[in-house]
Amino acid sequence: MRYYTGQFTGVAVTVVQDLLSILNGTTGSVIIYEFGISQSTEIGDAQEEGLSIVLKEGATTVGSGGTIPAVVPLDVGDAAATSVVRANDTTPAINGTIVTHQTWNWNIRIPFQYIWTPETRPILRVNRRAVIGLLTAPADSITMSGYLVWGETG
């Protein structure tokens, strides 16, 4: 297994979006281990809010409006990843049979980190796409960071 991270830093988030998405390549599988999201600008009691976050899978059309962050192996000697990560797509990935696996509400005052246990790590077969989606428009612009950690087989 080769492990990779992709991240975004200090992005002003004002609307509903795909915070992170990953599309598996044409060979092997992607196994998702962890993601984290956090923000630095809405602080204190008066700024506290709860945002809806979901893990979805199955979109066949890529989102747009965001970026393609670098994909970095955790071991510098590993081959480049074959999957593609996107961040902050304000036009979400659509089409296909999209299923929602998990849903959370994030209190933005504290970072949100999710680590799957070994038995429950999502597996993306070839050409499958998963999305960490923000379903709630923030009340104010929030400056966010986030990361995704996954493994590739084959």
């Binding site: 830093t9 504290i110 960071s145 990361y147």
Partner: peptide, 20 residues
């Protein structure tokens, strides 16, 4: 590799799981 925002009111601890 990773990017976080730390709310300074509480400690920030990060433990990598064995595979990562």
């Amino acid at each position: 590799h990773y990017s976080w925002n730390w709310n300074v009111r509480v400690p920030f601890q990060y433990i990598w799981i064995p595979e990562l």
